[in-house]
Design a protein around this nucleic acid. Structure first.
Lengths: 149, 149
DNA sequence: AATGAAAACCCCTCTTT
DNA sequence: AAAGAGGGGTTTTCATT
């Protein structure tokens, strides 16, 4: 997949502000709005553009504890089953099958530490095959960005 | 901060598709576009809505290796300095100061394992105060979502 | 790959309820 | 908190180059 300088300007703009008017980007790069449209269709068709989202700040709704949890499984064969359970837990916002110590590595968003403890004890630990977990609480997140175009 | 059912519908729509027309949301909830606008201004002023972004799929540009790296620091006092260096590394897309084993925990996006090795050896390990790192490569990410509204 | 034109639609604000 | 109206800009498509 090859993208040129104009594609980069389009992407940079929309990755920063998904509601940036196509026409204002058109004026910035010096081509017509129709051409930007055509390029956006191309970028969507290629799969590079996956979608767009509004970003919310969880803290404003009281979700102040972000944590990473490494999960040990009894047998690797239970991954699929465990994943199905994890998907049902709203607090789990990322899940990865990883190399290294853990079998599964998840990112969890909770209101506070007590809420996190509930999720760990009542939900995660209750999943069949989960033998042990290790938790890292994020005290300060200073970088949060996407691929640099 | 209190949000009602209408706010939730607005947020759910825009969190899924940041370019969803305000007027189509208005029709869905059965109030005027002006009212949606007013609510959006309120949600922005409260800080709940932080912004919007286009989401890109890094794999399409050849970035196929996602990894988490736990970083050990010699002395906690070097956190600020280390963070400054981390911000300069484009491949570092998240950075957290964490409880537990590590001092800093980062998420890294690379083209491949070789690229990851370069970033680890030539960039991360070169940061003053970094004594050791532990790497977890994500082989399969199956959950990636925001706070459930 | 880009253009200009055109119709439909939407954004946004203001005033009023 | 919401409605209605209105001007002006934007989206989107199409034929054309």
């Amino acid at each position: 997949m090859h993208i040129d300088g104009i594609d980069k300007i389009i992407l940079k703009n929309l990755m920063e502000d998904a509601r940036a008017p196509i026409l204002s980007i058109a004026r910035e790069v010096g081509i017509s709005g129709a051409a930007i449209h055509q390029r956006l269709r191309k970028l969507e068709k290629s799969g590079l553009i996956v979608g767009s989202k509004f970003v919310v700040n969880p803290k404003v709704l009281g979700f102040k504890t972000l944590a990473f949890v490494g999960i040990f499984l009894d047998a690797a064969s239970t991954y699929k089953e465990a994943l199905k359970r994890l998907k049902e837990i709203d607090e789990v916002i990322e899940s990865h099958y990883t190399t290294g110590n853990y079998a599964i590595f998840v990112k969890i968003l909770c209101k506070d530490n007590e809420h996190l403890m509930q999720v760990l004890n009542k939900q995660i630990q209750g999943i069949k095959g989960v033998s042990r977990t290790e938790t890292f609480i994020s005290l300060d997140q200073q970088i949060d960005r996407q691929l640099k175009i």
